[in-house]
Simulated scan of single mutants.
Amino acid sequence: MRFKMLAVCGLVAGLSVATAQGPKEIKVPIKTSTGEDAGTATFKTAKKGVKVKIDLKNVPFGPHGVHIHQNASCEGPDFKSAGGHFNPDGKKHGFDNPMGHHNGDLPQNVSVGEDHTGSATFLVTTISLDPAAPNSLFASGGTSIVVHEKADDMKTDPSGNSGNRIACGVIKN
């Protein structure tokens, strides 16, 4: 009986460790300021970081900066409730930082075609889906993914000169 109890306790402890690592994948709906579907962002744990797949729709033609912001809030019409960029490492935005890319936010642009759709996939090594990690997307109750009206110029600190926020999705565990 004692052996069975130890085995059950070991199994429960093993489960709690697996749960602490967070989800392997999360899919986040993205909405415009009017509540229209603007696509999805899928975050998947990778060997070194998180693989992020962005699928946009109903978004204006052209390139759009996509960033992770520090608050799990997407209140329209301006999405200012998302706060500033998620930057757990406190790095400068753009190519001036030693790593040659952005700070802790999502460092890319997504091109949207004339059909108002676009997609891109990136590997982001500065974030995690592990809720216990300091660079977790779930830190302090979560974060958000924000689509901006213009392309990120990859150098201007802190926003990349990417303009207003036109779509947003809440990232929560």
Rank of each mutant, 00 (worst) to 15 (best):
F3T: 14
K4N: 08
M5G: 05
L6R: 02
L6T: 11
V12Q: 04
V17Y: 06
V17M: 10
A18H: 04
E25V: 08
K27G: 02
P29D: 10
I30M: 02
I30K: 01
I30C: 03
K31W: 02
K31R: 13
S33T: 01
G35T: 02
E36K: 11
E36P: 02
D37G: 03
D37R: 08
A38F: 01
G39R: 07
K44Q: 12
G49V: 07
G49S: 14
V52G: 08
K53C: 00
I54L: 14
L56D: 07
V59W: 06
V59T: 15
G62K: 08
G62P: 03
H64V: 11
V66M: 13
H69D: 01
A72N: 08
A72R: 06
E75Q: 12
G76V: 10
P77I: 07
K80R: 15
A82Q: 10
H85W: 03
F86H: 07
D89I: 02
K92C: 06
H93R: 13
G100I: 03
H101R: 09
H101C: 08
L106E: 05
P107K: 00
P107G: 15
Q108F: 15
N109S: 01
V110I: 13
S111D: 12
S111F: 14
V112H: 12
G113T: 07
D115F: 14
G118L: 09
G118R: 04
S119M: 02
S119C: 04
A120V: 10
T121P: 06
L123E: 11
V124F: 01
T125M: 04
L129M: 10
D130G: 00
P134W: 06
S136F: 05
F138I: 01
S140A: 12
G142I: 03
T143S: 05
H148G: 07
H148F: 00
H148C: 03
E149D: 14
K150S: 15
K150P: 09
A151K: 15
D152P: 01
S159V: 02
N161I: 01
S162Q: 12
C168L: 00
V170H: 06
I171K: 00
